[in-house]
Nucleic acid binder design. Structure first.
Lengths: 118, 118
DNA sequence: TCCTTAGTTCAAAAGTTATTGAACAATTGT
DNA sequence: ACAATTGTTCAATAACTTTTGAACTAAGGA
């Protein structure tokens, strides 16, 4: 099962920039990048907002072509749409992520996490 | 004479992305990049909107740290703030400009221009 | 079957951004 | 001094975006 995603050539630069220009969404993208390869579900981002609000922001990211959302059971697995973004806007995602990593003003996922030990 | 500009370390990533996420402003930046080195005044952008509206968009670009505005007589000379952007967000401006150059959906400066001959 | 978990949808409210026109200010040329 | 040129400011409006809570759907486990 799949949700509506724009075709790669329908991804709009100004829309991608506008969508990334929101601190909550930029924080989501930064976290997705830090876990690249691992598909994350929506509840991983609850530090960044309410369930409803995240649903809204994650839909914006998907509709802009920044993320891919796969429906698996009751979960939505979210990944960065790196392949298409890199093809369409070479270097953009990498430079945004690199800058976001150094951005202390951005809300953090896992900020409220208790130290986990082995 | 100088207008208020943010210090380099005050330039915010999400703010820069949000400001570039508007088609009018992205078109301004693309045109500035195409004429890099040549300071342009506001009236060069009149294809993109009314005088008042451009004043608004150009102020947003300046306040976000994307452009530098120098007051010279009755003109404002506008340049890309490439040095600071490149330092703060390496590769970002270049990838945005490269993508913007290939963006046919973006409004064009000089679209209404009559062929100029030598 | 019933309960829980995961996430969506909807409508309202709040907040923000973009666009407009009229009035203004400052500089430059005559 | 006057007019033209360049651009700003202000207030109003229009148009979006974000956030919220309550109600909902769909899958999975007991």
């Amino acid at each position: 099962m799949t949700l509506p995603h724009p075709a790669a050539d329908q991804i709009s630069l100004s829309n991608v920039l506008a969508v990334l220009g929101d601190p909550t969404r930029l924080a989501i993208v930064r976290y997705l990048a830090s876990k690249e390869g691992v598909p994350l579900n929506c509840s991983q981002f609850l530090d960044l907002g309410s369930k409803t609000n995240l649903s809204y922001h994650l839909a914006k990211l998907r509709e802009a072509g920044v993320t891919r959302t796969e429906v698996v059971g009751t979960s939505r697995l979210i990944t960065l749409r790196r392949d298409d973004l890199d093809t369409r806007f070479p270097g953009l995602l990498d430079s945004v992520i690199a800058a976001a990593v150094n951005d202390t003003a951005l809300p953090a996922v896992g900020a409220s996490e208790i130290e986990v030990r082995a």
